[in-house]
Amino acid sequence: MAEESPSGIEMTTDQPGGGVASKSTDSFTYLNSAAVLPVRTIHISSPILAAQSPFFYKLFSNGMKESEQQHVTVQIHASEEAAFMDLLKFMYSNTLSTITPTALLDVLMAADKFEVASCMRHCSRLLLNL
């Protein structure tokens, strides 16, 4: 697609041992060579993410830049945003609000990207039962 408009989602996570996450950064600017990316800040528990997704587990622990950061930025494509939010909600609640096949497919894609096995199973089951 012509208009590629990446969006940044900044997630302020409670890293274990990292103290309380700062809430002051309500808006954050992510600079991508030319364009200014929209940033969304979410406060979310890192252990919950790490427990369900090997990606997040490594993100918080494997010794690269993010392991030391209070605010971790995950850059996603704008088109992925809704699915990504659904995925995060699923990791907290184990339920999905979306039921349309297209949306489910998007969530499945997101779950696959971050290897959230429970969500992948959930989506596949819903899609098969359509």
Binding site: K58, M64, K65, E68
Partner: peptide, 15 residues
């Protein structure tokens, strides 16, 4: 120099 790298970025690129 791994601590200067962004895991997220590299993962995303490989993905």
């Amino acid at each position: 120099n791994a601590s200067g790298l962004s895991f997220e970025e590299l993962y995303r690129n490989a993905y």
